[in-house]
């Protein structure tokens, strides 16, 4: 039976005037420690940025640019394309345009040269489109937008792959030299953000 509010407040007042009880503080809680599951383990992402054709192109390009190697997962196994779909959805407009334009260019080139979607190309066919767009490194990004897209895509796929949970799990069982760089470090939490 619930305690009437007035009696509850009075009871609180009684307790608060007792120095012995006050010094004891609250009783320790014994709630079990709950370890939450990672979203990637529990559910699959809903695509929100690329069109189905663009995503299929991205996924096929990912399989060629960053394949599985030496017992380590590639971009597809690391769900890098799905992650990039999320990342691009929250990116500034110029970057979104670069990616959309770049993927559309791969598709149009595939249709022009092979009369099919990029996602349907064999590896040697796709190489004929990708290789001319991979240019030697320069300090400034390539001026040509398609070259710039592929330069960024190659780097983004690599980072999204090596910083993924599947890669970290596989790298843990691989020699240091073999696994290369994996993403880990000292993370600074938000520190008393300004209240507005």
């Amino acid at each position: 039976m619930p305690i009437p509010r007035r009696r509850f407040v009075l009871a609180l007042g009684t307790v608060s005037t007792s120095p012995v009880v006050f010094a004891q503080g609250p009783a320790p809680l014994s709630a079990p420690r709950i370890v939450p599951v990672a979203p990637d383990q529990a559910a699959e992402p809903v695509l929100q940025f690329f069109t189905p054709t663009q995503f299929a192109t991205l996924r096929h390009a990912a399989s060629l640019l960053q394949p599985a190697y030496s017992n380590l997962p590639g971009a597809v196994e690391a769900a890098a394309p799905e992650f990039l779909d999320f990342l691009l959805a929250v990116s500034p407009a110029p970057r979104q345009a670069l990616y959309r334009g770049g993927l559309d260019h791969l598709t149009s080139q595939a249709k022009l040269l092979f009369k099919k979607d990029f996602a349907a190309l064999t590896a040697p066919e796709a190489d004929q489109i990708l290789k001319p767009l991979i240019v030697p490194w320069t300090f400034d990004p390539p001026a040509d937008l398609h070259e710039r897209f592929l330069t960024d895509l190659r780097a983004d796929l690599r980072t999204a792959t090596t910083n993924s949970a599947p890669y970290a799990a596989a790298a843990a069982t691989t020699s240091r030299r073999g696994r290369g760089r994996t993403g880990a470090g000292l993370y600074w939490l938000p520190i008393d953000p300004t209240r507005r």
Partner: peptide, 24 residues
């Protein structure tokens, strides 16, 4: 900053943006 409390070791895949950071 509390250098003990405000910094924790994390793998990149535990971060919201896989180490890329919030774009922009």
């Amino acid at each position: 900053a509390d250098l003990e409390r405000d910094r924790v070791n994390k793998s990149a895949h535990e971060l919201p943006y896989r180490g890329f950071g919030k774009p922009g």
